[in-house]
């Protein structure tokens, strides 16, 4: 059981990395990756929301959508859950951790439209994960996102002092670096057997 959970975690962080394998969350990946500190804040905010969203989505799917036979409402339901959870998390953080809110605040609303979260909720239904596995999956995908965006930010901080061709400056060179990073992550695919 524990071994299985660890396998799910490693597989989601390294092998099926959300950013570099499934191209999810590319907008924050390009937009917020110019400074390491803000990239890490964004990453942890996303991880936090994902870890909470996963079990809630699982409960709603198993106890409402399946029970009352409403699979066609899945998209609408999940997106509402995500949007309201993000709002809720923002209010809680603002009330109890004002310092954290100052550093993380502007990123929280953006998380609603991070496609990684919707993808994660749909995948855990598709793969028929159990409740605990879903939580690990949500946490793992958040960590994978944080890892990718933090690596990218550290490279881009160095890149500021380098001579980049004029036309590739900004998003162009970022995408090319992401390509090379993705190539490295492809190399990790043989690490463990996953489906």
């Amino acid at each position: 059981m524990v071994k299985e959970l660890i396998l799910v975690f490693i597989a989601t962080v390294l092998i099926n990395n959300f950013v570099l394998k499934y191209f999810l969350g590319i907008c924050p990946f390009l937009g917020v990756s110019d400074k390491l500190s803000s990239a890490i804040s964004m990453g942890f905010a996303t991880t936090f929301v994902m870890t909470i969203t996963a079990p809630v989505a699982w409960l709603i799917n198993n106890y409402i959508l399946i029970k009352f036979d409403l699979p066609f409402l899945q998209y609408v339901c999940f997106i509402i859950v995500i949007a309201s959870l993000v709002q809720f998390v923002e209010m809680v953080i603002k009330k109890f951790f004002p310092l954290l809110h100052q550093s993380m605040g502007i990123y929280l609303p953006l998380i609603t439209t991070n496609c990684a979260i919707l993808f994660m909720t749909l995948q855990l239904v598709l793969r028929e994960y159990s409740l605990i596995k879903s939580m690990v999956f949500g946490f793992g995908s958040g960590i994978g996102f944080t890892l990718a965006i933090a690596i990218m930010a550290s490279i881009r901080e160095e890149l500021e002092f380098r001579d980049v061709p004029e036309s590739l400056k900004g998003p162009g060179i970022t995408l090319i670096i992401a390509g090379i990073l993705a190539l490295i992550f492809v190399g990790l695919a043989g690490l463990i057997q996953v489906r």
């Binding site: 061709p165 036309s167 162009g172 992401a178």
Partner: peptide, 22 residues
């Protein structure tokens, strides 16, 4: 084959962006 995999997607889009800028 690399063009069909994720790295190919990133590289192609990056280079096309450069072309559009030029």
């Amino acid at each position: 084959i690399i063009m069909l995999t994720p790295p190919g997607a990133f590289l192609t889009l990056g280079l096309l962006l450069g072309l559009v800028n030029i």
